[in-house]
């Protein structure tokens, strides 16, 4: 089991940049990887399955959206160490309700990512 890695999955590069900056500022030693495509992120996880991941996942993305990404994970037959946060600009209640159906998702976060949350997350 290696050191945990943070995956930022969002088709919006600015978002990824902002979030990555916050994480880096708070925890400079944290290994962070950005993906604008969920598929790529999935591929990365599969090829490095033994690493514990912290994933910040956007919902609305072209090609594979956040839900689809989660569905793909469920289809996998391997044991993964994932801590997933849905990070979305949506304030639609329907989305909040839907998240509850995915047991893998730890928390539903509304953009922008808050410094306090990040601090609390890794200062445990």
């Amino acid at each position: 089991m290696g050191t945990p890695m943070v995956l930022l999955i969002d088709d919006d590069e600015i978002n990824n940049y902002v979030n990555s900056s916050i994480l880096h500022k708070e925890f400079p030693h944290l290994e962070i990887k950005q993906f604008t495509s969920a598929e790529e992120a999935l591929a990365h996880i599969l090829s490095n399955a033994d690493i514990p991941y912290y994933i910040f996942l956007d919902i609305n993305m072209p090609l594979m959206n956040g839900w689809e990404f989660l569905d793909e994970l469920d289809k996998l037959d391997i044991i993964l160490n994932l801590t997933i946060f849905m990070l979305t600009s949506s304030i639609d209640q329907a989305d909040r309700d839907r998240v509850k159906t995915y047991s893998r998702v730890n928390q539903f976060l509304v953009k922008p990512l808050q410094r306090t949350f990040v601090q609390s997350l890794f200062n445990k």
């Binding site: 979030n19 609305n60 953009k111 922008p112």
Partner: peptide, 18 residues
């Protein structure tokens, strides 16, 4: 309103926070 409209706003908020 909930999806598209919030996206740029959230982005601006993030940048400002930074």
């Amino acid at each position: 309103q909930s999806h598209e409209f919030r996206a740029p706003i959230a982005r601006i908020q993030g940048l400002l926070n930074m």
